[in-house]
Simulated scan of single mutants.
Amino acid sequence: MIKKTLYFSNPAYLSLRDAQLVIKLPEVENNPSLPDTMKCQSLVTKPIEDIGLVILDHRQITITSGVIEALLENNSALITCDSKSMPVGLMLPLYGNTTQNERYRKQLEASLPLRKQLWQQTVQAKITNQAAVLSACTGDMSKCMYIWANEVRSGDPENLEARAAAYYWKNLFSDITGFTREREGVPPNNLLNYGYAILRAVVARGLVISGLLPTLGIHHHNRYNAYCLADDIMEPYRPFVDRLVFDLYLKYGADVLLTKEIKIALLSIPTIEVNINRKRSPLMVAVSQTTASLYKCFTGELRRIVYPDFNGSF
């Protein structure tokens, strides 16, 4: 079953009762101009077990320690946002799998050649998905992208990932003069930042559930990055976010702002339909298959990570 994403952008009081998340909205409850029938709707409950991701985007949200404990025990991820409504914090369960220690050891013992091969597969899947997005959004058949994907060697020593990315961004948003993918860049970079933050949380959650350390990457290794492995594994999933952002860019224009309406659209990322193992699946479920396959690669049961593609998506 696909887990729900809950987004809070107004004052709220979140508590726990009988394994249910109790949501109280003081703005509704304390408004004298509203009828009592509407005030009854200020109190909502949601089963904790149905929740996969919670996003807190308001400074006047109160959440009890009981709620946090229950969310983490049910392998939910909790995101907090800053004053600019951008995700700034991520809380994940410490123990997402019953054989945690064994799985950590398998991950830590992974050889350098294996990690390089896994990164090769990751880059190939990413470039192939980027090529599919370019073809669908711009009509560019991107033959060079497929050639680069096939030429990626173990560890990607030629850094074909970067070459493909430069071509990809230049052509995906070709209507925007000099567009580059930068965190502080012009729109729709703001939408991409937000979408990737949600995706990162979904992937980090999947890794923890599979009993893996999100910190220890197969390629990324920044000493200040607590989610190197999540940043590795999310790479082939980024083009699914890019496609959604491209559609929003066409609808709202080049100067699109990160409004509440846009955020709601981006919150659909965990439920985006993807093709994985020749079957259609919500992105959050597909991530679980990817992270489970990654562990099996560490144990030697599999030789390839299972990644999604755009086959039949357009």
Rank of each mutant, 00 (worst) to 15 (best):
K84I: 05
M86L: 11
T122C: 08
P87Q: 09
Q117K: 15
A110E: 08
Q121K: 14
L90R: 03
R103F: 01
Q107A: 04
L78P: 02
V123L: 09
G89M: 10
Q100D: 00
P113I: 06
K106N: 13
Y95N: 11
T98R: 07
T99M: 11
N97R: 09
E109I: 05
Q120D: 11
Q120A: 10
A125T: 08
A125H: 05
L108D: 14
T122I: 02
A125C: 12
R103L: 03
L112M: 14
Q120Y: 11
Q107S: 01
K126I: 06
R115H: 13
Q121M: 10
E102I: 00
D82P: 08
G96H: 01
N97G: 01
E102H: 10
S111H: 13
M91V: 09
D82K: 09
V88L: 07
L118G: 06
E109P: 05
A77Q: 00
D82A: 10
G96N: 00
R103G: 04
I79M: 14
M86D: 05
A77M: 04
E102R: 09
S85N: 13
L114Y: 11
Q121W: 08
Y104A: 01
T99K: 14
Y104D: 01
C81W: 04
L94H: 08
T80Y: 04
R103A: 01
K116N: 15
W119I: 08
Q121T: 11
V88Y: 06
E109Q: 15
V88E: 09
P93H: 10
S83T: 13
S85A: 11
Q100I: 00
T122R: 02
C81V: 01
Q121A: 12
A110M: 12
T98W: 00
Q107P: 03
N97D: 07
Y104C: 00
T80W: 03
R105H: 14
L108I: 13
P93W: 03
K116W: 11
N101Q: 03
D82N: 15
G96R: 03
L112A: 15
Y104E: 01
L118N: 05
R115A: 07
P87H: 09
C81H: 02
Q124P: 05
T99Y: 13
R103D: 01
L92E: 02
R105E: 13
L78V: 10
M91T: 12
R115F: 07
L108H: 15
G89T: 13
R115K: 15
M91K: 07
R103Q: 03
W119S: 03
T80C: 06
P93S: 12
Q100P: 04
P113L: 06
E102G: 05
Q124E: 13
L78Y: 04
L118I: 13
E109W: 13
T122P: 05
Q107I: 00
Q117F: 12
